[in-house]
Amino acid sequence: MAIEARGLAKWFGDGAARTDAVRDVSVEVRLGEMLYIVGPSGSGKTTLLSMISGILRPNAGSVRVEGVDIWGLDDDALAEFRLHRIGFVFQDYHLFPRLSTAENVAIPLILRRRAWHEALVEARRLLGLVGLENRAELPPVKLSGGEQQRVAIARALVGEPDVLILDEPTASLDGETGRSIVSFIRNDVLSASRAIVVVTHDARISEFAHRILVMEDGRLTAVRENHAHAS
């Protein structure tokens, strides 16, 4: 099991001002699986994603990734864990505008203390994988939205993570571009030793999921198996 989350809960604020973002949610994600979390805006998807990826500490519950109780780790160990095990694709990419595309992609390797030059060689290889080899020296702002998304994916993948986390990967892309990117992730990024969790409310890409969890008001309300594409 790649991820086992038990009884996760998260609330913000206290007393009358308290918002329950996630209430008692348990999730399992298998290696080789592409899992979607869908639901209306404000239903707690990002909060859940953050708790299972070691970014947001839950108020209750536990998360095991590849057997490691991640919320039992101290801050440094948790950062180290995210760096080595998890690839993030943020909703608004968060690429550094003053760095070249290749330098952006190299960041996780730089944080792992790899030599600058070596990291850039590897970053260019990843850019080739997402079809952007000829964009390596450009700043991200010179790229289209779809291209920036692919740069963000290359950055998430450069460290060979076991778990890839994507929050609304198609939100700011047109339908065609969104589909091609998710199709690429499903066909070329997913492998037997990797789990992918996607938060989305884009129905156009639902065919690529193995399983879809539906959230409403902080609760898991349905689980749909997608037999059409299950592999």
Binding site: A79, E80, R82, L83, F88, H94, F96, L111, R155
Partner: peptide
């Protein structure tokens, strides 16, 4: 101006000390 990017670095796995 770079604050969000520093935040992204943190999420990716940069330690505060770094």
């Amino acid at each position: 101006e770079n604050l969000e990017k520093f935040g992204a670095l943190k999420a990716i796995g940069a330690k505060g000390r770094e």
